[in-house]
Amino acid sequence: MMLEAPAAQSPLRAWLFLVVFSFRRQARVKQMVGIAIGLLMICLLLVITFTASAGWNRYEWRMNRSKPYTVEHVAGGMAHAAIDQSEYMDRIRQETKPLAVFSKWVVFLLFLGFLMPLFSLSFGTAAMGQEREGRSIVWLLTRPLPRSSIYLAKLLGLLPWSLALTVGGFGILCLAGGEPGQKAFVLYAPGIFAGTLAFSALFHLIGAMFQKPGIVALLYAFFFETMLSELPIPGTLKRLSINYYTRCLLYSSAETEGVPTETSSLFVPVSPTTAWVVLIGTTVAITGIGMWLFGRMEAKEEM
């Protein structure tokens, strides 16, 4: 059997196949997908347990703990109204609302502080990093496809996974959280989506550029980002972190429902429009830079 007359080779067709091929290759990284789902399940179990047992309304618990009306015993019943209308009680009422409790601990702490960066990091760095580590990247680089298009195809192949696990995982957690969870999903899903896009683009770039991308990304996500976006430090240095803009989006959504956030003088949030522009712009810019760099980069043999 011989190969006959040359058939038409279409770079576009090859590129579209590469997108699908990259998506399918991500599924083969079973260990990583398994761990991601495992971590999500642990969080899900905690949320379900809490929803089913104590519930998200923490007013009674907070009142029992801080006992603001104790003064009444001394000052008499007249003090009740004063205490009831005080700023302190307003804050307690706001902070103990089911949506506020769910937002603070599940969304801002657990999801934004851990699951979202970790999932984006894992899939983002693995797309190109595993091809390099496994030295199978040679099969892609010797195909008749522009290098920059290979970079873009790999990113498009990983995004569904990254988004499915972050936005989808977030949806599952919210669903398990009952009514406040469902409200939280509507409020925060767009912000989570934008943050995931930006993180994935950044970690994909790290995956393509560094020999140990996982470690560099880990250093960035849990050292640099944590330091800049979460710690209450003044100044505008935190504006270099993706997490900051994601938080700005989430906080602004939260405020529409009266959920208290960290928008203190130290956090200094930007407007939601600015945050959207920065996150989408960052995604596009990082992808563009990655395509440009990868298009000029020689394949290095991984050791």
Binding site: A7, A8, Q9, S10, P11, L12, R13, A14, F17, L18, F21, W139, L140, R143, P144, L145
Partner: peptide, 12 residues
């Protein structure tokens, strides 16, 4: 898969 990455149609 390598053939598809060369840009050939599936049947080809």
């Amino acid at each position: 898969a390598m053939a598809r990455l060369c840009g050939f149609e599936k049947a080809e």
